[in-house]
Each structure stands twice: as C-alpha cells, then as structure tokens.
Design a protein around this nucleic acid. Structure first.
Length: 146
DNA sequence: GCCAACGTTGGC
DNA sequence: GCCAACGTTGGC
C-alpha cells in the first residue's frame, strides 16, 4: 500500500497507531483493497515519490471495507460528485501500525531481490497504489527489512 | 522537471 | 463503441 511521505508516512502511522486508508480513486486499486483483503492480513507500507522510495514497514488490516467518507466531502480533494451514500463508489480499509523496518527496503534493493522479480509493484507501467503480492515476496521483503 | 505508461472523459 | 485529448502517477 503506497503513500507519499509528505502525505502520510510510516512515522505518522507509528504515532497514530491506526489510520483509515482514504483517497484511493482507481477502480483496480479499490477492488484489491475492498475484495482481496481480510482483517488480520499484513500489508507493506510503501513510501512512493520519496528519496528513496521503498518499503518502510508493516501494518495490519483491521476491519471490513467501508465507504471512504472523503468522497462525500465537497471540500476534500478526494470529493467525487458522482458518488452518493446510497451508492458509494470508493472504499477504504483501516490499518494498524505493526513495525517500522530496521532497514528501509528501497526500490533498488527490491529490484535486486531474486524473490521479488515478479512483484506487481515492480512491473513496468505499474502505478496502482494498492497491489497484491505473494507470500514469498512478502517474506523476502520482511527479511530484507530486518 | 521530464516523460512513459497508464486511466478517464466526452464528442461523435 | 471508438479514440483523441487530457489528467495522473511516480521513477528518474
């Protein structure tokens, strides 16, 4: 799960303990988050557009998918005039801070990892802010993170 | 700041 | 349904 550091970082999550993953406005990313996660799942917290970009830590998915309230808020940058409470278009998950990696796993390290060659996030043109990964890939990243 | 690789919008 | 124009993402 990606977030820009300037927007919300692993340190912010460590401070807040839990957070709502608002602002996902891409259907494919939404579907991954809404349909393919379950409470108790672990997720990698990825810092995008950062120096360097990479995986900063671990978090846990808590609770079911819920409508993202920011889609109804006119003043929000995430406001979607086409969404209604009767028919919400965008969903979110809540997450709980798990750990901050001892060793930040930057993009270069990810690309070097034999186990991670097929990771969705590393594929050319891959831009989704929420992407799945395999158990093997997950374990490899966790190992690199220490 | 550049730009490849998308995704979305809207006229037709 | 097609597709040009436009907007966004995110590595570099």
């Amino acid at each position: 799960m990606k977030s820009e550091v300037s927007d919300y970082s692993i340190d912010d999550l460590a401070r807040d303990k839990t957070a709502s993953w608002t602002g996902v406005r891409n259907y494919q990313a939404r579907n991954f988050m809404r349909d393919d996660m379950k409470p108790g799942d672990l997720a990698l917290f990825y810092h995008s557009n950062a120096e360097p970009s990479g995986v900063a830590g671990l978090m846990e998915i808590i609770g079911d998918a819920k409508p993202d309230e920011t889609q109804f808020e006119k003043k929000s940058i995430y406001y979607d005039p086409a969404a209604s409470r009767e028919k919400p278009r965008w969903f979110l998950r809540s997450v709980r801070f798990k750990s901050k990696f001892k060793n930040f796993v930057d993009l270069a390290k990810l690309r070097e990892s034999a186990e991670c060659q097929k990771m969705v996030i590393l594929q050319k043109g891959s831009r989704l802010s929420i992407t799945p990964l395999t158990e093997k890939e997950f374990q490899a990243v966790v190992a690199m993170g220490g």
